[in-house]
Nucleic acid binder design. Structure first.
Lengths: 215, 215
DNA sequence: CGCATTGGAGAGTGTCACTATCTAAACATG
DNA sequence: CATGTTTAGATAGTGACACTCTCCAATGCG
């Protein structure tokens, strides 16, 4: 298929596809002549993944390129490819290391991991970007005067453990390693809005249950 | 306190505070003279909330203004103020209504709400922005070929129910209605990065448990 | 033959969260 | 009272980002 058909079947405009090609989010097609290339189903699939990551997952273009590169990195195994891809995802602003609240938050987060027994590699985890994201969020809550200690966090973390089991069960349904890694990234990113919207809906439901009938 | 002190105690630069004043994210101070105003502790508190919403919660400035207005809207009660504030939060791109996948996603989401028994007001819920966010995310997963039916979603939704109970328990610890509404918004927004980072950490842990030792 | 499409590249657009610069008034210090 | 700093208020500029536009020459297609 050529550019116009790729555009039509994906719903992405041709200038945008050209932009993605330029940014190397999409591999170049097979060159037919000096002015034409042939694209296959794998281009369509990749394009849809790129779109979903950028539009639904809100991932910056340069970051998406790194995530996709990690998915395809043949020098890494299964588990490490997924780790590299997740590490490349956006994680919000870095924690302010000069702030004492950050140091306290880091202690709280470390204590939480110990309580959970997530210690497959505590040094690696504590240097990871999701851990930094957690530290920054705890510090922000602390700044606002909302207590956020391990007692508050533990139930959330237990829920997260359950979610991870669901996620990995889904991933293991895919037969090939490539399919599993791609699925892991796609499901990590695309289930985030699912989870957040369900939480907001559940909060509305619970709020109505508790406060709803009083006016 | 005056501008310089507000800046120092909040860690926000004076030009940025002026910008927030201009954008009405922060109420004006009490005018002392033609060129000076006095700010109180409530300004400091509000400023920290604004910062947390924008920097940690990644909420656009104009959206933050609407959220804050909803918190303070005296014409609404407790529950509806929270609803209005959550409704004002960003929810990602709208679902493409011309896409048949969107219609299918909407059916799936509606069926899910029925299964859950979240039917305090199904028409209202189905028109809400979190519901639209859920529909868009399901449609995106469908586009990528990842099955996302009620069987897959139900465990996530059950987890979300649990989370909402924790959240509302936390909210009810605050004594005043104003404090509760502000806490509900702050906790809704600021626990999102907590939840997402914990999920990513839990996935890394679970991935290691399943695939980690094979190389 | 003539019109549309393509690959490629550079420049332009719109949004967003600041950030810089200015002015006149007023405070702070010696 | 002189001098330097701070302030409110307003306008304009910045840098990042995700496109989007425009152009060109070569090619495909009817």
């Amino acid at each position: 298929m050529r550019l116009a058909e790729l555009s039509e079947r994906s719903g992405v405009s041709t200038p945008t596809i050209k932009y993605y090609l330029r940014e190397r989010l999409l591999p170049p097609g097979r060159r037919i002549t000096a002015t034409q290339s042939e694209y296959g189903e794998e281009h369509l699939r990749r394009l849809r993944l790129v779109r979903a990551l950028i539009q639904v997952g809100r991932i910056p273009v340069t970051t998406a390129r790194e995530v996709l590169a990690a998915i395809e990195d043949d020098s890494l195994n299964h588990h490490h490819r997924l780790g590299a891809a997740v590490e490349a995802l956006p994680h919000g602003p870095e924690a302010d290391e000069t702030d004492p609240a950050t140091a306290a938050a880091r202690r709280t987060a470390t204590e939480l991991l110990e309580l959970l027994g997530w210690r497959f590699n505590l040094e690696v985890t504590a240097a990871s970007r999701p851990f930094g994201m957690l530290v920054a969020a705890i510090a922000a809550l602390d700044h606002l005067g909302y207590a956020c200690d391990t007692a508050h966090l533990l139930p959330y973390a237990r829920q997260a453990e359950q979610l991870a089991v669901f996620d990995l069960d889904l991933v293991e349904e895919f037969p090939t390693p490539e399919g599993q890694v791609e699925a892991a990234v796609a499901l990590t990113v695309l289930y985030e809005p699912v989870l957040l919207s369900l939480r907001r809906l559940a909060e509305a439901e619970e709020s109505n249950r508790r406060f709803g009938t009083d006016g």
